[in-house]
Every structure is written in C-alpha cells, then in structure tokens.
C-alpha cells in the first residue's frame, strides 16, 4: 500500500470514485504525473528539514559581547514552527500531486486539475486521435512525456504532461477507446 500510493498508472483502480460517475460507469485507467515532477519540491523539503540541524546550534552559540542572542525556549519555538511549516509544505505538495489525475472510464475521459478545482470531461465517443510525445533529454532518459487527446467536443484537446511511459499509456487508452466504441458501451 505504501508503494501503491506513488503509482502513476493504475488499471481498474480499487475503491476509487469521482463526483459525477454514472452507476454503470467504471474507472478503467487512472493516470498521475511522474514522480519526477515532485523531485524539485522534495529537494526543497529536504533542505527545510535539514537546515534547522545546522541553523539552531549556530544560533544557540551566537553571542554579542559574550551575551547569548537567543535563549533555549525561543530557539525551541522557532524549530517547532520551522518543522511544522516543512511538514505542511510536504503534505500540500503531495496532495496536489495525488489529486491531479486523469481518468479514463468506460464512458468518458475526466481531467481533474489544480487540487480538484478544475474538472473537465468528455465522452469517449468524441475522441478522435491520441498521440504521445517525449520531450528533451530528461524525458528520453526517464521515459517521461505527454499524451495529447484530440476530441470533437468543446474542449478540443486534452493534454497530459509529464507522464511515465507515454507510449504504453497511449496504447492502453487507445485500446480501451476502441473496445468501448466497438462494444457500444457509450
């Protein structure tokens, strides 16, 4: 389960639902951005957790004319706040990554963005074309890219950036769309 929460491509995710799902609709594919997108922020978080280990002893020893500038309680409170801020930062970063998902269901594709504040969906029947693309050297090394889904609806294109294994994902979505259109489930 601990590793499962970091998965970026899940087929038939268990115990998962979204607002607006029909009773006869099933979630077939769940996509999240690559964990690589979290790397810069987790690096920042690492700095936030490690910095007090050096800063606090330095401040504790700092004196002016042999008078200590900071006392124990003030440094303790400062450290508490610093770590609270670091934990809050990590929590928010993870939340925004975890809840920014792209769903392919038996009837629609659903794009949930910005911490569930922006939700776009379109029926599978509107999908006309699916493309994948890998950008840059980092993309080539880590096999990270984008998926572009052309639709006939009001939202003409869905773009999902920084996805792991974009070719595999494109193929999975394409097969699912073909299967659902052929079976007439939409």
């Amino acid at each position: 389960m601990a590793i499962g929460i970091f998965k970026t491509f899940i087929k038939r995710p268990a115990n998962t639902d979204y607002q607006g799902r029909d009773s006869d609709e099933t979630i077939e594919i769940l996509l999240r951005k690559s964990l690589y997108t979290l790397f810069p922020k987790f690096l920042m978080a690492f700095f936030l957790f490690v910095a007090p280990l050096f800063l606090i002893p330095f401040l504790a020893k700092a004196t002016v004319y042999k008078v200590h500038i900071f006392d124990g309680p003030s440094l303790f409170i400062f450290a508490l706040f610093f770590y609270l801020f670091a934990v809050g930062f990590v929590f928010e970063v993870f939340l925004y990554w975890y809840f920014e998902v792209f769903l392919v269901t038996s009837k629609k594709i659903v794009d949930i963005n910005k911490g569930c504040r922006s939700i776009s969906e379109t029926p599978i029947i509107n999908i006309q074309d699916i493309n994948s693309k890998i950008h840059g050297s980092i993309g080539e090394i880590l096999n990270i890219g984008s998926i572009f889904i052309q639709t006939a609806g009001k939202t003409t294109e869905f773009e999902i950036n920084m996805i792991d294994n974009p070719s595999v994902v494109r193929d999975a979505i394409s097969d699912l769309v073909t299967k659902e259109k052929r079976n007439g489930h939409i």
Partner: peptide, 21 residues
C-alpha cells in the same frame, strides 16, 4: 489560516475524487 484552508481543501478534494486514503 493556511492550515484551516487546507482542511477545507482536503474536504473538497475527497468529495470530488474519492480514494482509499
């Protein structure tokens, strides 16, 4: 204030997208 907003945001997220967590 930020922590309070976060609790509300988590509630909205859990309502819009239900997960085991």
């Amino acid at each position: 204030f930020f922590a309070f907003l976060l609790t509300r945001r988590v509630k909205i997220m859990n309502t819009n997208f239900k997960t085991p967590l």
